[in-house]
């Protein structure tokens, strides 16, 4: 079972070391991890996607992470009331004669072409992982040169903020 955790941490040196060392030390299974600045100057928000066997293991992940001194808050963002997104950039090998075909696909997925040259183009897409997976698969037949994905970020619906609840 996969769960998305919003982990609010102090923006201090060593925080990522502490978080990643704990994950490795406790043998937790991490699907993705994404970190960035937030609305508060000294808080970094890490979105973790964990794969756990049961509720007890999820509880362990939350409790063990909570013990880290620099972890201020953890919220489990349950799939039904939160928005998940990931950003991907896909570099596809593409000769000029097939550009139109690929642009059609790009439009269907509401993706964007962000760079084009004689032999390749770069496509940017944001969305849920399944949508990105689907486009990557379709583009596979044209020859994908590189895929870069950010990992999931997520936010709850409604006016509430993770730092508050």
């Amino acid at each position: 079972m996969k769960y998305t955790l919003a982990v609010l941490v102090e923006d201090k040196p060593g925080v990522l070391t502490h978080v990643s060392a704990l994950i490795s030390r406790r043998a937790f299974n991490i699907v993705s991890i994404a970190a960035g600045y937030t609305e508060e100057a000294d808080i970094t928000r890490i979105t973790l996607v964990v794969d756990v066997d049961d509720q007890y293991e999820l509880e362990q992940v939350v409790h063990q992470l909570s013990k880290l001194i620099d972890v201020v808050k953890i919220v489990v963002l349950d799939g039904t009331d939160s928005v998940h997104r990931e950003l991907a950039m896909i570099k596809v090998a593409c000769r000029p004669e097939r550009r139109a075909e690929i642009i059609n696909l790009v439009n269907v997925f509401r993706a964007h072409v962000v760079d084009v040259n004689k032999e390749a183009m770069i496509i940017e897409l944001s969305g849920e992982e399944t949508k990105i997976d689907a486009l990557c698969e379709l583009l596979g037949e044209y020859g994908v040169r590189e895929i870069v994905r950010t990992g999931r970020i997520a936010v709850s619906r409604g006016a509430g903020a993770a730092r508050e609840n």
């Binding site: 070391t17 704990l22 030390r25 880290l68 001194i69």
Partner: peptide, 13 residues
Amino acid sequence: SGISTPVTKHNYL
């Protein structure tokens, strides 16, 4: 600090 991270409650540099 890296080496001691998994065996300390907290650490600082």
